[in-house]
Design a protein around this nucleic acid. Structure first.
Length: 573
DNA sequence: GCCGTTTTCGGCCCGACTGTTTTCAGTCG
């Protein structure tokens, strides 16, 4: 497998951290970080761009030098400069720099003064009260470091969006409940609907004498108050999730919302536009000298800068600023655009509810159709259907459909793609279905070329319509299969197959970057819940979140269509 | 190290909070 963009980004990121500890020019450090981010957000692989003869130095933040370095890494899989630097500075210093409150300067000082290279050595030095003897460190910092190391031992770094939502919603309601608080919104990556969030940034406006910060830190799910000031406080919830609250003036509400929604790189861009007009944009507003010329609403800020309003999901510095300037922003798909759901399970395999409950719930949710796609027999643990049991289900679906005039259950199956790429069901039975969802559930660790061939072979079968959860990743739990997704997408496009954005909160597969790659290739996607219960049908909106981040418009999504239109699209002959 | 209707050299976003200081450096977002 070629070197992935994320691997190169990781190398640059590590290099940047060590450079920083080494005391290098901070702008040089930033250049590596910027390049890492550009690579991570790139819809196609840098290596394939190089092979196609494209000039990487045309990418933003990548100049001649870094383009050469990417080329060298692509060829050798190694980053020589990083290895050289690691001869002087142990790579493990980066872990110490990752502790909150510890930055490159303090890491360097600890390394020089105490020879501390690793976290366990740092912990020992803190316990021996040797840290407090180092200039710039005191007893409190020593204790903070010990607490942090202890806490770190059993904690995930980032929270899945849906998990964060479960903690955020009641907290937001608690804040809005306070009579002195006028407006309260969650900004940050949560508002951008990123698949995972590291912490929550909440903004509020309030009456002058409202004791907002007291109310905030008194929330009963607070485990620790990390900071408490008059305009900003930070707490840690019992789950470990940290929450920042900022009290902002109402007159600058829009500017604050914009500033704290980010992403950082998007903000830098907008601030540069302001600077070019000799204005200043900060979290309090857009200023011409001392005069505030915008800031009450986000719309006002964008408009003053000569930009169309950019939806939060797009604010990642992935070309949205240019699009906003040129009036070329996409009309993002919304959950209301979806006419139905193309992937779910019932009690017949590993779902919890029966056909009728699933149908009734989907119809109540406003769906015009719901594809019933239980597992095929290869998925023994999930109670996969044999041809016989599937045919029984098809009869039951016909029976139920007779009772609806504004809704339809679609006959489908989540067919296992066997290790050799064949579909796990008799072709004659597959032909009786409205559509076939195909997916991989075993032999996840095949080499990348084998896994890619397997998927393409499955799509060679004219019965294959949609490849479900195409990369198999589980957020924070399981990496994607080794797979050449670009080849898979090309093959899907050639064959009239489609891929899925699986809306299960732990899957979100395809992710935002891959979905955007599909869009740019002209490949349409299904957004499906893969619900295993009637309540799971509500997950569609998490799929929509990622689709919007990928710039998908209604036309890019299969299930924005009525069933007759969708049926035409699915027909492969 | 990148980048240019501010510049091919000299900039590169900036304000709040903390802890260790006693006027500020370091860190963070």
């Amino acid at each position: 497998m070629p070197v992935a963009n994320t691997e190169i980004a990781e190398l640059f990121e590590r290099y940047a951290t060590l450079l920083e500890i080494d005391g290098a020019n901070p702008f040089r450090v930033r250049a590596y970080r910027n390049a890492a981010r550009t690579l991570e957000n790139l819809p196609q692989s840098a290596v394939s761009m190089l092979e196609a003869g494209e000039d990487l130095s045309e990418l933003s933040g990548i100049g001649e030098d870094l383009a050469d370095k990417i080329g060298a890494i692509a060829r050798s899989g190694r980053f020589d400069e990083l290895e050289e630097l690691q001869d002087d500075l142990p790579a493990s210093l980066a872990e110490i720099a990752a502790l909150p409150g510890i930055g490159p300067k303090r890491v360097a000082r600890l390394y020089e003064a105490l020879g501390v290279e690793r976290l366990d050595e740092l912990e020992k030095a803190a316990k021996d009260e040797r840290l407090r003897k180092v200039e710039g460190f005191g007893a409190r910092t020593e204790q903070k470091i010990l607490d942090e190391i202890a806490r770190r031992a059993g904690r995930q770094k980032r929270y899945r969006l849906a998990s964060a939502e479960q903690m955020a919603a009641p907290l937001l309601a608690y804040l809005r409940d306070h009579p002195g608080i006028k407006e309260a919104e969650i900004a940050g990556s949560y508002r951008r609907r990123k698949e995972t969030v590291g912490d929550l940034d909440i903004l509020v406006t309030a009456a002058r004498d409202a004791e907002v910060m007291e109310h905030f830190v008194a929330y009963d799910d607070v485990e620790a108050v990390i900071a408490k000031g008059s305009t900003r406080s930070t707490i840690r919830l019992r789950s470990g999730l940290e929450v920042d609250l900022r009290l902002v003036p109402a007159v600058g509400w829009g500017a604050a919302l914009h500033y704290f929604t980010g992403a950082k790189a998007h903000n830098v861009q907008t601030r540069q536009i302001a600077a070019a007009k000799h204005w200043k944009l900060n979290e309090y507003g857009l200023f011409d000298g001392d005069e505030r010329i915008a800031g009450k609403t986000e719309e006002e800020v964008y408009q003053a800068l000569g930009l169309a309003y950019v939806e939060p999901e797009l604010r990642e510095d992935r070309g949205e600023i240019e699009a906003a300037r040129d009036g070329k922003l996409p009309e993002l798909v919304t959950v209301e655009d979806l006419k139905g759901d193309l992937h779910c399970h019932t009690r017949a395999s590993d779902g919890r509810d029966d056909l009728e409950t699933m149908a009734r719930t989907a119809r109540e949710r406003g769906h015009a159709y719901l594809a019933i796609s239980d597992h095929s027999q290869h998925m023994r643990l999930a109670g996969g259907l044999s041809a016989k049991r599937l045919r029984e289900q098809l009869r039951a679906i016909d029976e139920l459909n007779r009772g609806f005039d504004d809704f339809r259950l679609l006959k489908a199956l989540e067919v296992d793609i066997l290790e050799d790429g064949r579909l796990d069901m008799d072709p004659d039975v597959l032909n009786e279905l409205d559509l076939r969802i195909c997916s991989i559930h075993d032999a996840l660790d095949l080499p990348g070329d084998k896994q890619t061939e397997r998927l393409i072979k499955a799509m060679d079968d004219p019965r294959c319509n949609v490849v479900a959860h195409p990369t198999g990743r589980l957020i924070n739990k399981r990496d994607p299969y080794r797979l050449d997704l670009e080849r898979v997408m090309e093959a899907a496009l050639e064959r009239g197959c489609f891929l899925e954005i699986n809306a299960q909160p732990q899957r979100l597969d395809l992710n935002d970057r891959h979905a955007r790659m599909a869009k740019e290739m002209g490949l349409k996607l299904a957004i499906s819940t893969d619900a295993h219960s009637a309540s799971g049908l509500a997950f569609l909106r998490f799929g929509i979140d990622q689709a919007r981040r990928a710039r998908l418009e209604p036309d890019d999504v299969l299930n924005t269509r009525s069933w007759p239109d969708l049926q035409k699209l699915l027909c492969r002959n």
